[in-house]
Amino acid sequence: MTDAVRLDAVSKVYGKGQGAVAALREVSAAFTRGSFTAVMGPSGSGKSTFLHCAAGLDVPSSGSVRLGGTELAGMDETALTVLRRQRVGFVFQAFNLVSSLTVLDNVTLPLRLAGVRVDSAWLAEVVRRVGLEGRTGHLPAQLSGGQQQRVAIARALVTRPEVVFGDEPTGALDTMTARDVLTLLREVVDGMGQTVVMVTHDPVAASYADTVLFLADGRIVDAMAAPTSEKVAERMTRLGAWK
């Protein structure tokens, strides 16, 4: 299987009858293993719904979502929870760390929740790669925002997931710190063969990806390979994201 995640004709409708709102309309997309994809679009274009359906956080109204060889349709919430815990990593805008746990305990939390033994060699490798050596005994409040996001990335990687989903992972960071985190995500793809799918509103963030998908009104309306921040910004302006 070359695709880490595949969506086929995925639609998502919220509500019923006259109040129904279509957040996604027959969206198809495939994310190759070892690729970095940014998803962009104006506010209300369906970016978050797209991410949630692809990651098994939300169930499509119709269509198919496959994680590797596994079809998510028809799985109950318990099975989806196990799948997300074992095979998917998440990095959010709000770092979502447990304030009373050390860096090390935050990173290993998904393994403990799953009842999986910690592979100390892999844990050390992840900590080293995200640049947290010497910080593992700290609490989140003792870290900068960028360091906290590095903890979140390490937590996403420690289970060796098939794909890491980022929802505005640099949205709460200043420009220089955001650049460090984006460089780390790029290294995760290039150096570790990880697959990253990231929703962002920032053309500079999108320029770190291999491909950018553009959503508008719940549909994928364009894709851009080898993006630059200038080309992405220009395309977003034509989508009506910025006037």
Score class of each variant (00 low, 15 high):
1 M>H: 14
4 A>Q: 08
4 A>I: 11
4 A>F: 08
6 R>C: 14
7 L>T: 12
10 V>M: 15
14 Y>Q: 12
18 Q>Y: 09
18 Q>V: 13
19 G>L: 14
20 A>L: 12
21 V>R: 10
23 A>I: 05
25 R>F: 07
25 R>P: 02
31 F>H: 04
32 T>E: 10
33 R>D: 08
34 G>R: 03
34 G>E: 10
35 S>P: 08
35 S>D: 07
40 M>I: 07
40 M>N: 08
41 G>N: 08
42 P>C: 07
44 G>I: 05
47 K>E: 12
48 S>Y: 07
49 T>A: 13
53 C>I: 14
55 A>V: 10
62 S>E: 15
63 G>A: 11
65 V>E: 01
65 V>R: 04
67 L>G: 02
69 G>K: 11
73 A>T: 09
74 G>K: 09
75 M>A: 11
76 D>F: 07
77 E>I: 11
77 E>F: 11
81 T>Q: 04
83 L>Q: 06
84 R>L: 06
88 V>W: 02
90 F>C: 01
91 V>M: 04
91 V>H: 00
93 Q>P: 02
94 A>H: 13
96 N>I: 07
99 S>T: 12
104 L>E: 15
106 N>F: 07
110 P>V: 10
110 P>N: 10
111 L>A: 12
113 L>H: 06
114 A>E: 01
114 A>K: 08
121 A>G: 13
121 A>M: 03
123 L>W: 09
125 E>A: 15
126 V>I: 11
126 V>Q: 00
129 R>P: 02
129 R>C: 08
135 R>L: 13
138 H>Q: 12
138 H>A: 09
138 H>N: 12
142 Q>Y: 04
143 L>C: 00
143 L>Y: 07
145 G>T: 04
150 R>L: 10
151 V>Q: 01
153 I>H: 00
156 A>M: 10
157 L>P: 00
159 T>N: 14
160 R>V: 11
161 P>Q: 03
161 P>E: 01
162 E>K: 06
162 E>R: 05
163 V>W: 02
164 V>K: 00
169 P>I: 03
174 D>K: 12
175 T>A: 13
179 R>C: 14
184 L>F: 07
184 L>T: 04
186 R>E: 10
187 E>Y: 08
188 V>H: 00
189 V>I: 07
190 D>R: 09
193 G>M: 05
194 Q>E: 03
194 Q>F: 06
195 T>Y: 03
196 V>P: 03
198 M>F: 13
199 V>G: 07
199 V>P: 01
201 H>F: 14
201 H>I: 04
203 P>L: 11
204 V>F: 15
208 Y>W: 15
210 D>S: 14
212 V>L: 09
216 A>M: 11
217 D>Y: 05
217 D>E: 14
220 I>N: 02
221 V>W: 13
221 V>A: 08
222 D>W: 03
226 A>I: 00
227 P>D: 12
227 P>Q: 11
229 S>T: 08
230 E>Q: 08
230 E>S: 09
230 E>R: 04
231 K>D: 15
235 R>D: 06
236 M>E: 15
